[in-house]
Amino acid sequence: MDTVAPAPPAPAVPARQPRASLWALRVLLTGQLLAVLAQPVLAGLFLTGDVDAITGHGLIGSLLPLLGLLVVGGASAYVLGGRGRLWVLPAAVVLFLAEGLQVGMGYARTLQMHIPLGVAIVTVSVLSTIWVWSSSARRPR
């Protein structure tokens, strides 16, 4: 009676995980979050009488779409090169577009749109930054 020996197990190939791209995305999102969190502080200072604070608010606000574009680049590297979560790239693009719209609404002084959109941008930025530092962001798709 012939017995067939089981085939040896195939060598385990480690799943490719996002590493450098994840760290780049972490740094970019954290930097963007700091700039985003400065915005309500500067607006509040302006409303309490520090008229010079609006200059900083406008400058940081004008730079936020540039930071958003860098985040889109980092998200692209994370998703495409690092095999990260797919939802991160469209979320970064939507945040970038919202920041561009926010700048336009601010300079147009359309506060009924500028303030709620700002709250949404702060919320998404905080949640995105919390997520990117979580263990879930390290897992490959």
Rank of each mutant, 00 (worst) to 15 (best):
V27Q: 11
V27H: 13
L28M: 05
L28Q: 03
T30G: 14
T30E: 02
L33R: 06
L33E: 10
L34R: 10
A35Y: 02
A35H: 03
A35Q: 02
V36C: 06
L37F: 02
Q39N: 03
V41H: 05
V41E: 08
G44L: 12
G44V: 05
L45T: 07
L47K: 07
L47S: 05
T48P: 02
G49H: 10
D50R: 14
A53W: 09
A53C: 11
I54V: 15
I54L: 13
H57F: 12
H57E: 09
G58A: 13
G58R: 07
L59P: 01
S62M: 03
L63N: 10
L64W: 10
L66R: 01
G68W: 01
L69E: 12
L69R: 07
L70T: 04
V72F: 04
V72G: 11
G73T: 00
A75K: 14
A75P: 06
V79T: 13
G81Q: 13
G82P: 01
R85H: 02
R85L: 01
L86E: 04
L86F: 02
L89E: 07
P90V: 01
P90Y: 00
A91M: 15
A91K: 10
A92I: 08
A92Q: 08
V93P: 03
L95P: 10
L95F: 15
G100D: 11
L101K: 01
V103P: 02
V103M: 14
M105L: 14
M105A: 11
G106F: 07
A108E: 14
R109E: 09
Q112Y: 05
M113H: 15
M113L: 09
M113F: 07
H114Y: 11
V119N: 10
V119F: 07
A120V: 08
T123M: 08
T123V: 13
V124L: 15
L127N: 04
I130S: 10
V132F: 00
W133V: 04
S134C: 01
